[in-house]
Design a protein around this nucleic acid. Structure first.
Length: 581
RNA sequence: GGGCUUGUGAGGUAGUCUGGAUUAUCCUAUCGGCCUUCGGAGCCGAAUACCCGGGUUCGAAUCCCGGCAGGCCCUCCA
């Protein structure tokens, strides 16, 4: 917003000039704040030392020496050592209205930056359905990717599929060697059994039975170990079988993700780094650095004690005694691969990966890589009864949450609308249910541990996804009623405090996106969206829109601007911007 | 034992990175209003909070030190 930037510049320049005349040095740092009762505040405490004057007196002197109104500065008062500036509302509002209404659905979108950003998220092991404990990953990752896209970056989202190791081998063994009867028995023995007819939900029982059958029986364990060995040695039949099972499972996972509007651009299979020799190349590189060493029986490691890692975690092992690679070795190869095709690499990870991620960064540094992956960690979601565990039946699957949310949304809509077709109601119910689920998860800071509660996850009012969708639908409805109206971007027609406030909030959209780009705190987007929606409802309640005399067209234009901003907020959040509900 | 992280009204949560005031944000629940024409999944109002103890500072929810409480991690696992 040009006017806003200009306003800030004018304020700072005026203050700088006034300070200079009081004998202050040129380079004094000016702090900016945005308070409730003014458009810009500058505290004078920081100038006190240089001027040898009390802050309150400085504020008063400065305020006296600045002539207002002047340019975009409409007013200035000194209070408690602060300089409180107010902006020329007419100029600002005109700017906001014309900028947003001309850019329309493009408002907030930046021109292409050419920066290739890779966002890896989800990447759960293909051994079972996604549960809500892990649902934070796709939702945070997808939201971040959407925001970065709007910033003009060239974003690729990516799922790293773990198709190497004992777990997936066990999974595929279970598919081949567990009988339907055994599966049935397992289902019957499970408390709160899961009867969903979906591949990932069914196959997880094979996995569980397999674990039980193999556990503690030497010849079975040997069979698994043999498969792992064959896999690592490149035995095609074994690899194909494991991969096929993983693909099947992944299909189920993807169905769930698609239901919450998450799609991935790319899948990278861990086994490729075994097959193409990249993992071995990492071993060779690391062994040739001064930090590398070997244990007595021949496992290789690098010592990370010079890299800010403490205690007994400094030895970062990258080969087994028999020379084979480890998960982390392959992960290094994977990161080298990602860097070869991206400018920024972002990993969305559970907080349990913190140490591993730090070690990975150090190892990359040892290998001479300058760039570092940016990690975005999230704390786990647990249930009131404790940590989620599929085995104990202490688990809520994402599929069940989506269904429940959709069902409840359907009940609500059925209560309110009897004019809609069945099909339409179901589509809207899905949009609202998914909206509630996604919003509820991105709403809170990623580092905050979360206890899942049904009533919170299914909230449709207040600070919720459906509230934003509702306001969007409401704005659309008003615009439909307005029909062909004459756009009016004259800010002087909008003088009510609620419309002024709304317009100023709308102007902030781009800066919210910028902050998210820089900090990766995606929870700022739902907070901003709620602010917009709430300000709109206040405006709506305070003044008439369609019958406002001279102001009518300007108000409708403001409604249109709100619709555009809200639309893009919803897009960033992965919620459907429905036009009625 | 060591490391990382979180602690804000009854419940949840923003703000903490980059220290500021005049009323510490918002939601839910509670209580009291609005049953406003343009969509009540709404609007207005009331009441209730910075884990404890020190320190730095003109000024601390924010920075530092020490406690306490929860979570996570410390595999030649993935």
């Amino acid at each position: 917003m040009k006017v806003q930037e200009q306003f800030i510049n004018e304020c700072e320049n005026a203050v700088r000039k006034a300070l200079a005349s009081l004998g202050a040095p040129e380079d004094l740092k000016i702090v900016r704040e945005v308070p409730e009762n003014a458009d810009l505040a500058i505290p004078c405490f920081t100038f006190a030392k240089a001027l040898k004057m009390p802050p309150v007196a400085i504020a008063e002197k400065v305020a006296e020496s600045i002539e207002v109104p002047c340019g975009l500065i409409a007013g200035l008062t000194a209070l408690n050592g602060y300089l409180n500036f107010t902006v020329d509302n007419n100029a600002l509002l005109s700017d906001v209205l014309s900028e947003i209404s001309t850019r329309g659905a493009d408002f907030g979108k930046s021109a292409p930056t050419g920066i290739r950003v890779n966002v890896e998220h989800t990447s759960t092991n293909p051994t079972g359905p996604v549960h809500v404990g892990r649902a934070r990953n796709p939702i945070i990752g997808d939201t971040l990717a959407r925001c970065l896209k709007m910033r003009g970056h060239d974003v690729t989202t990516e799922y790293y599929v773990n198709d190497v190791g004992k777990q997936v081998v066990m999974m595929s063994w279970g598919v081949a060697n567990v009988t339907p009867e055994e599966v049935q028995k397992e289902i019957e023995e499970t408390e709160k059994a899961d009867d969903r007819d979906k591949v990932d939900h069914r196959l997880v029982f094979n996995y569980r039975v397999a674990n039980k059958k193999v556990h503690g029986i030497p010849e079975m364990e040997a069979q698994i170990a043999d498969m792992v060995q064959k896999f690592e040695a490149g035995d095609q039949a074994t690899i194909d079988h494991v991969k096929k099972v993983a693909e099947t499972m992944l299909g189920g996972i993807n169905e769930t993700l698609a239901a919450i509007n998450v799609t991935l651009d790319r899948y990278t299979w861990e086994s490729t780094f075994l097959a193409n020799g990249a993992a071995k190349e990492i071993v060779r590189k690391l062994q040739n650095t001064p930090y590398s060493g070997q244990t007595e029986d021949g496992a290789s490691f690098v010592d990370l004690k010079d890299f800010g890692i403490h205690g007994k975690n400094t030895k970062f092992t990258f080969t087994r005694a028999d020379g084979t690679t480890l998960y982390t070795t392959r992960d290094l190869a994977y990161h080298e691969d990602k860097f070869s095709r991206s400018d920024r690499v972002i990993d969305v990870l559970g907080e349990d990966q913190k140490l591993g991620s730090q070690q990975l960064c150090s190892a990359l540094e040892i290998m001479g890589r300058k760039e570092k992956p940016e990690a975005l960690f999230y704390a786990f979601v647990s249930l009131p009864e404790g940590r989620m565990s599929t085995r104990k039946g202490v688990v809520v699957y994402l599929d069940d949450l989506i269904d429940e949310a959709t069902d409840r949304a359907y009940e609500e809509i059925k209560k309110r609308r009897n004019d809609l077709s069945e099909e339409k109601m179901q589509a809207i119910a899905r949009a609202i249910g998914v909206g509630a689920v996604r919003y509820n998860i991105v709403r809170v800071g990623a580092d905050k541990q979360l206890i899942f509660k049904w009533e919170e996850a299914l909230s449709f009012d207040g600070n919720s996804g459906p509230y934003l969708q509702y306001v969007h639908a409401r704005a659309c409805s008003i615009l439909r009623k307005a029909g062909d109206y004459q756009k009016d971007t004259d800010g002087s027609k909008l003088t009510d405090e609620y419309e002024v406030r709304l317009a100023k909030i709308l102007a902030r959209f781009e800066s919210v996106l910028k902050d998210i780009d820089e900090t990766k705190r995606v929870n700022m987007m739902p907070a901003y969206g709620h602010e917009v929606a709430s300000a709109f409802n206040q405006f709506y309640a305070a003044v008439p829109i369609l019958q406002a005399g001279d102001s009518t067209n300007a108000r409708i234009t403001l409604v249109e601007c709100t619709k555009h901003v809200l639309h893009n907020v919803l897009v960033c959040l992965g919620l459907e911007p429905i036009e009625e509900m």
